[in-house]
């Protein structure tokens, strides 16, 4: 489902309006542009490019926006600093901890200043204390910068912090109330 929301896949049936535009009929290039301009992805396995350092990883979305390398790296460093990773900026993903990598991934999702962050099990491969910190980061963004946040998760404590809850059970999607989820 996150693939559909993130415009990585097209629905077999039905319609999907993204920001008022019908994206089912959009071309691959148009979808790429929307992904770049409006959507930031955060994955469970971070999905950073191992051959690039943190700055280049974060700057990558800007590169596909045609922004020159120096400017893009500048913006990326600023974003990393906001994530508290200024000192790790020139490290490659392999030299960073899981929490640091996920924060780099979030920085990459944020650097293009999207309207929507799609997080696919963002804490799935992190231990508890770091998971909490990552979730704090994400929810702070949601509060302070008016970025919509969609999280797919099995972690109920993470789900509990969200405003709306959608549950997929036996292939059916249903909205449920916060209270029921807590006791579930």
């Amino acid at each position: 489902m996150l693939n559909l929301l993130g415009l990585l896949d097209k629905p077999d049936a039905g319609t999907y309006d993204f920001d008022g535009a019908d994206v089912v009929a959009a071309s691959a290039d148009q979808l790429a542009r929307i992904r770049n301009d409006q959507i930031g992805f955060v994955f469970q396995s971070f999905n950073l490019l191992p051959q690039l350092d943190a700055v280049d990883n974060v700057a990558l979305p800007l590169c596909y926006r045609g922004i020159e390398r120096e400017q893009a790296r500048g913006l990326a460093i600023a974003q990393l600093e906001r994530m508290g990773l200024g000192s790790r900026a020139s490290h490659r993903p392999a030299d960073m901890s899981g929490g640091q990598r996920q924060r780099v991934a979030i920085a990459r999702a944020l650097v293009g200043e999207p309207a929507l962050i799609l997080a696919d099990e963002p804490t799935g491969s992190l231990d508890n204390s770091i998971a909490t910190m990552i979730l704090d980061t994400l929810f702070d963004l949601n509060d302070e910068q008016n970025v919509s946040l969609v999280i797919v998760t099995h972690d109920l404590s993470a789900a509990a912090r969200c405003q709306r809850h959608l549950q997929i059970e036996h292939g059916r999607l249903s909205e449920c109330h916060t209270g029921t989820l807590r006791t579930a």
Partner: peptide, 25 residues
């Protein structure tokens, strides 16, 4: 947030960026 959105400068990466990326590759 104080700064403006990183403005789209083109449809895709500039030739120079492509070159740098290819070299890294």
């Amino acid at each position: 947030m104080t700064r403006g959105k990183a403005v789209r400068a083109g449809l895709g990466p500039t030739p120079r960026q492509l070159l740098i990326e290819a070299t890294q590759g």
